[in-house]
Design a protein around this nucleic acid. Structure first.
Lengths: 198, 198
DNA sequence: GTCTATACCGGGATAGAC
DNA sequence: GTCTATCCCGGTATAGAC
């Protein structure tokens, strides 16, 4: 995603690439349409030939991400996973972290967009609860099997999700700040594991 | 902070109150200067008699918060606290949560402002690391005493901070979504405690 | 489809009367 | 200090030539 001398074949693709570049560098909210077109070496007007607005572009990128991430993100994910098992918990943390890392521009943009998106006070919570639905289901599965959890599944799932997304947003945008993915994934797993075991 | 029929004695105070009202309702970024003046039943121009900009107002509110919160927030906080002790950890979680709750408008505004504030990619991380300095020092204190932590103090502190602030922002803006402070504080404490004990 | 030029507008900020 | 009226700018979006 560095500086490309050769023009991309399609302007659509060039705009998407440029947008991703800019979202990481400047953040989504700080990126202007003209920043994107300039980075793509295209005229301002061309943007609107392909997208109706910046939000429209973001939704397109979001779809691209879901499509390429396949079922692991959007698809149905079996609820019968045991998060009190070190291996399984680590796998979930790793999957989330790596997805964020591999789709950082879109993750960053969605994170920021969610803040401005809804004016209603409850919007952020709704968003967080929705985004951690799978996690919540895993916890409910455990609870229904008689396991003792540190708190209500929805709450604990939201807390874990806030941790993941907040840390990911900050740390990954900073290029990891010299930390390996391994270190982060292991640290988060170790921090959460014992608490989930109750 | 409800609808006040009587005009506040001072316009300065009225603007601050109105701003806090609006920040919770609309979010900081979505609040226009005119939203604030209208809510305070003052003219647009009056705003600039008291503040140079919206950010200037936020800084004033931030100072108010620090002043009234006293040393517990801004002041020096002894590093020799044992976060692996259930009572002490709970006290820290409770203090953070209650501070967020009691200063929700400012917390919301600062949270959003931090996103737009710095354009540099590393800004958010810097911010998070700074905001969890005290927590990090507690963890370093433990490590230096030979305690085994789930990961690097700065990383773990940042993770805990992201969880607290992310959850606080979302849940408190939603009015708690029917949850008591107790439930949240107990849940977070239970989730983190065992992991910190190693 | 892409370009240049420009219209348009929200919203921050100011001028000047009271 | 507060008001009304207005300016002004950044940024989105469009018009129309190529």
């Amino acid at each position: 995603m560095g500086v490309r001398k050769e023009r991309s074949a399609s302007t659509l693709a060039a705009l998407k690439e440029a947008a991703k570049e800019q979202f990481v560098e400047r953040g989504y909210l700080n990126t202007k349409i003209t920043d994107i077109t300039r980075a793509a070496s295209r005229a301002t007007g061309s943007f609107y030939e392909h997208f109706g607005s910046k939000d429209d572009l973001l939704r397109a990128l979001e779809q691209d991400m879901y499509r390429q991430a396949g079922e692991s993100l959007s698809g149905q994910h079996p609820a019968d996973h045991d998060l009190t098992d070190a291996v399984q918990l680590r796998a979930h943390v790793a999957a989330a972290w790596e997805t964020m890392r591999d789709n950082l521009p879109v993750v960053v943009a969605l994170h920021e967009s969610a803040i401005v998106g809804g004016s209603e006070p409850a919007y952020a919570w709704q968003n967080l609860a929705d985004g951690t639905r799978v996690l919540r289901e895993h916890l409910e599965f455990l609870r229904d099997r008689g396991h003792h959890l540190p708190g209500d599944p929805e709450l604990i799932a939201a807390a874990m999700g806030a941790m993941l997304s907040g840390l990911g947003y900050a740390l990954l945008r900073a290029g990891g700040a010299g930390r390996s993915d391994e270190e982060v994934i292991d640290g988060l797993t170790a921090l959460l594991l014992a608490g989930l075991q109750g």
